[in-house]
Write a protein that binds this DNA or RNA. Structure first.
Lengths: 188, 188
DNA sequence: GAGCGTCTTGGACAGTTGCCCAAGACGTTA
DNA sequence: TAACGTCTTGGGCAACTGTCCAAGACGCTC
């Protein structure tokens, strides 16, 4: 019953999602158009509405999928780090990987904003972020940090904020931030 | 030579700017249209292009003006606070005033993103944020905080990040954050 | 009153958008 | 071979966009 076609269709769907991810960052959520995505994916314009009910649906699937992958990967790497200092270093390295103008940074920020206007997206994203914060708090607690819950909240927020600020001033000295952050985590 | 008309025109210009501010937050930077702004300002659609060269020009003027006012006001209030604890309290109070879904939060986030794509806006915004960070670092230094420069960077980023995160989870416990933040600022 | 400068009006224009759909392509099944 | 399921094509449509502009309104000067 056309099994090969189904497989090919699934590949097309995936290509649309992969094409949408950088476009969200480059052009902005509202500026991504069906024709834009289709062209970058190398397919006819009509394909988008065959695989997705609407452009918004495509953007939600693309942004949530990408964000989930990023957070999962990062949480996994953190779990492998034994000490607070090594973990903080990993955290800052992650921030320095994004200059606030790269597609990943922009996609995350665009997704936050879109979430404020699309309830379904907000719910999915909130769950993702809450999971990540829980994981971070658990890691902090295991490594003997003070106030792991609150510290995880500040850390998570600081990472997102730093990525935003780095877009305005790429010369921000991230290495210097390890000391105050470390200071926040130590017990009295 | 039509002085009354000039005054009235200036008032119209201001009304356009005031109408644009909440619209940027509500609809998103790219989704703000000339007709939308004109309608909310209570003027004919054509007026926008009489007072501004383009929609983008209007949005830049509106967002930069609003952001400058907000940062100035906050910096002034902070300067009046004598101690670290009182200042931190004021900082968290400012965050709690924004739930991440209010027009002000959204406008700031939208402006950050638009700045990544509009060089002129990025330059203006970068200057605003750098000024604010300098002021914050100065206040921290005066109040005997450790590592004032780096701490100001983390604090500024954390504020923006927290506002973003509060949009996803309004129940975030901000009061609990005072302790780790205070801990970050204390000298060894 | 006439003339002038400034601002305002409402519609025109070409371009772009999301979404839809008839027609066709292609492997699979009978 | 013929029929079928799935995916793909390319163009059509109404709605909306930024921008422009001729015409008019209003207060002011002479």
């Amino acid at each position: 019953m056309g099994e090969a076609a189904a497989i090919r269709g699934e590949a097309t769907r995936r290509r649309l999602l992969e094409a949408a991810v950088p476009l969200i960052g480059e052009a902005g959520w509202h500026a991504v158009t069906t024709r834009m995505v289709a062209q970058r994916a190398g397919v006819a314009p009509g394909v988008v509405h065959y695989h997705f009910a609407s452009v918004t649906d495509l953007l939600i699937a693309a942004s949530v999928g990408f964000t989930r992958g990023m957070l999962d990967r990062f949480a996994r790497e953190l779990a492998e780090r034994p000490g607070l200092d090594a973990g903080l270093g990993r955290l800052l390295a992650e921030v320095s990987r994004h200059d606030g103008a790269d597609p990943a940074s922009l996609l995350v920020a665009e997704t936050y904003l879109a979430a404020s206007r699309i309830p379904r997206l907000r719910d999915e994203l909130a769950e993702l972020v809450a999971d990540f914060r829980r994981g971070l708090a658990g890691w902090l607690a295991e490594n003997g940090a003070a106030d792991p819950e609150a510290a995880a909240t500040v850390l998570g927020a600081a990472v997102d904020g730093l990525i935003l600020h780095r877009g305005l001033d790429p010369r921000l000295d991230l290495a210097a931030l390890a000391r105050p952050l470390r200071s926040m985590l130590r017990k009295e």
